[in-house]
Amino acid sequence: MTKVLVIAEHDGAALNPSTAKCVSCAKQLEGAEIDIAVFAASAAAVAAEAAQISGVGRVLTIEREENDPAVAAILAPQIAALASAYSHVFGPSTAFGKDVMPRVAALLDVNQISDIMSVEGPHVFKRPIYAGNAIVTVEAPAESPLVATVRTASYQAAEGGNSATIESTNIDAEIPTHTRFVEVQTGQSDRPDLQSAAKVVSGGRALGSEENFELIYKLADKLGAAIGSSRAAVDAGYVPPETQVGQTGQIIAPDLYIAIGISGAIQHITGIKDAGTIVAINKDEEAPIFEVSDIGLVGDLFSIVPELTNALD
């Protein structure tokens, strides 16, 4: 019997699209019964959203004050306790899922399968290693609980239209006090979220300064796009770290990705190879980004980008 528990990612008010992508992955398991667990102080709004995801049987709400905001050391023992009724426990391979899921796996005495790209059987999956330079097919032991993170860029969000049962559950698990949330600082941006945006405009080191990134922002705003960047641009201090795309940043799959002044190191490419259309603008015609771009334009970004922004009126 394949029973999958998907751990909801949310901010206390709204469900993150990564959750519906995990459900899409779970649906690839033949005959799977899928439940979503919402850990929160007050779960009603998030649970109502989760219940709409097609393919979901039940939404379990686990409400306690300590669950807001989410802290891995506090959630993990609760998830592990809930996991005993399931064959599979899935979370997204976002910062949230990468933090909490391995802690759950260790509490269940199993290794985790990180970054599922495709389901090949009830315990067989494909995943990337070496920054996506190799894809491995892995098999987890059938007799143990299977804990995994789902590579969200490999899946579309499952559709809505469902009305799954919402059940409140109590979990008997010891909650540690050794870890305390202090604060979170966000970019305070009105632009779309990088993970879920349909369009992303991304800038690299060639921008040369924080001020010059204004060119990227203007084009992004014209397109209604999210902002991305290369590691080099972040390391140089031009843009905040949460914009970084690649092996050690965010892995994304927008419909349109425009790479501006980004040479295209393999570590960056691995973050965008599931994008629908990749546009590259670079002054170096030998830049590796042109090997993976669908539309390439060689030239000076400082004249091309303003011209492009104007041309989109």
């Binding site: 005495d109 199993v110 290794n111 399968i113 067989v124 990337p128 996506g132 330079n133 190799a134 894809i135 491995v136 097919t137 892995v138 098999e139 987890a140 032991p141 143990s144 190879k273 990749i278 042109f290 090997e291 993976v292 771009s293 669908d294 539309i295 390439g296 334009l297 060689v298 030239g299 091309i304 011209e307 492009l308 041309a311």
Partner: peptide, 23 residues
Amino acid sequence: PQIKTMKFEPPEGRQRGIMVEDV
């Protein structure tokens, strides 16, 4: 308990697309 690696394969590459001359 071990997760077994059954197979290694190269990733599916993206095709090189078109080049355009100007904006």
